[in-house]
């Protein structure tokens, strides 16, 4: 299954099926019935489809797209704005009220969030990725708090208790993601597991400046 997914043809077909499933009325209405389902399941899944689809593209194509957009940073900015938009209660209401906005949501999340994120991710080094993660996690937690603490009902379409449970879910999700991200630093061996530490320690990088240790 996993191996098959790695083949682009199969992968695209699976993604397409998932996309249609999400768009088809039964799943769509049941997810949109609750705020949590709408914000924390449907929207992330739509973005994820864009992300995975981008990964299935040939590397050369991805690189070309990346260069066309001017590197990783503009894409990250695009992702931030596009995803923030769909976090606004207003946007959720509009999507439920107007088929046009709903269509915009189904198109923009994969294309303007998932795809550019996947493109940028390639070029973001470990620092950039860590920065995106830590920022995303703290923003998610703060957003969750906003939903919990909001003094008024923020959506026309959802009740206050929905709002609160969505908020708590976001806070919990943020904690979980943070724990997971930290744990990922503790396991695995991205580096040189073969080299034992002591061997690496021995030679300090040669001093880059002229005067040797013998000065004086």
């Amino acid at each position: 299954m996993i191996a098959a997914l790695a083949r682009p043809q199969v992968g695209f077909r699976v993604l397409g099926a998932l996309y249609l499933l999400l768009a088809a009325p039964p799943l769509r209405t049941s997810l949109e019935a609750t705020m949590s389902g709408h914000m924390l399941v449907q929207i992330p899944l739509l973005a994820a489809i864009g992300f995975v689809a981008c990964r299935l593209l040939p590397v050369a194509r991805q690189e070309r797209l990346l260069d066309a957009g001017g590197g990783a940073v503009p894409y990250v900015v695009l992702v931030v704005f596009a995803s923030t938009w769909w976090m606004l209660p207003r946007a959720l209401d509009d999507a439920l009220a107007s088929p046009l906005v709903e269509a915009a949501k189904f198109i923009s999340l994969p294309l303007l969030v998932g795809l550019p994120l996947a493109l940028a991710w390639r070029r973001l080094g470990p620092i950039g990725r860590g920065f995106v993660w830590t920022n995303f996690i703290s923003m998610l937690a703060v957003l969750g708090w906003l939903y919990i603490a909001a003094p008024v009902r923020v959506c026309n379409s959802y009740l206050v208790d929905q709002q609160e449970s969505a908020g708590w879910l976001m806070v919990k999700l943020a904690l979980l993601l943070f724990a997971g991200w930290l744990a990922s630093l503790f396991v695995g061996g991205g580096g040189n597991p073969a080299l034992s530490t002591a061997e690496q320690v021995a030679p300090p990088p040669a001093p880059s400046r002229d005067c040797g240790p013998e000065r004086n």
Binding site: P126, I127, G130, F131, L185, F186, V187, G188, G189, G191
Partner: peptide, 21 residues
């Protein structure tokens, strides 16, 4: 400081593989 620590984390992982080590 977050950036500085992320850089240190990157460098440590690059050399030692992970934080446990």
């Amino acid at each position: 400081f977050l950036l500085l620590h992320l850089d240190i984390a990157r460098a440590l992982v690059a050399r030692y593989g992970n934080f446990s080590r």
